[in-house]
Design a protein around this nucleic acid. Structure first.
Length: 206
DNA sequence: GCAAAGATTTGCT
DNA sequence: GCAAATCTTTGCC
């Protein structure tokens, strides 16, 4: 995944994703049909579907199926590759934004907290990916396959192929079976940039 | 028109 | 371990 170009580019490897497959998938935003929010999911593939979750965090998805079929892949975790300083700076900027509303003590805590983060943890979660890569609703509908796009997907052929295992999806307790426990989360086992908060406890059976 | 819950993260108890 | 922050969408009045 790439944001920007030249020396200022921010680049990371996607190491954890979740699939949401069509209107029948009771865990998907498409389960109630087409809405203003999920409209791009029904459009052509290779496009970014970005939405605001819990009123505060953005999540990045890649539309996957042909037009009219509402499927997408949620980018859950990214391993920073280049532009690490910029990723950290953006995390810090966002943390300070939140902390400043609670006073100087909170701001100092936020600085310390971001500074202590290992590089690998800068985009270790769907909301954090969007913070570190400055992704918001402005990117909704962007063509991720166009090399000229500010935000895009690229294949690094020099990379070793990464092993992936399947696991159950996260944060969809409202869904019914079989959608609740279908193994549609895919991750690179042991990668230091995997999301941690709920991912660990839900269990990542391979 | 209003209440409730959500594909999350953080900070305090 | 739990609640808060905060806005979009659904579902019911």
């Amino acid at each position: 995944m790439v944001r920007g170009s030249g020396p200022d580019a921010r680049v990371g490897r996607i190491v954890e994703v979740e699939a949401y497959a069509g209107e029948a998938d009771l865990a998907s935003h498409a389960r109630f049909g087409r809405t203003k929010r999920n409209a791009v999911m029904f459009g052509r593939p290779g496009v970014a579907y970005v939405y605001l979750v819990y009123g505060m965090h953005h999540c990045l998805n890649v539309v996957t199926e042909s037009e009219g079929r509402a499927a997408a892949v949620l980018i859950r975790s990214v391993e920073p590759v280049t532009g690490v300083a910029a990723l950290r700076a953006e995390r810090l900027r966002r943390a300070l934004e939140r902390a400043d509303r609670r006073g100087p003590v909170a701001a100092a805590r936020a600085r310390k907290s971001i500074a202590a983060l290992p590089d690998a943890r800068l985009a270790a979660g769907p909301g954090l990916v969007c913070e570190a890569f400055s992704i918001d609703r402005a990117d909704d509908g962007a063509d991720l396959c166009d090399p000229a796009s500010e935000l895009r997907l690229e294949v690094d052929s020099s990379d070793e192929p990464m092993p992936a295992v399947a696991a159950s999806r996260i944060g969809i307790e409202y869904a019914l079976e079989p959608w609740l426990s279908v193994q549609w989360r895919f991750l690179v086992p042991g990668n230091p940039s995997l999301s941690s908060s709920r991912a660990g406890s839900v269990g990542s059976r391979g």
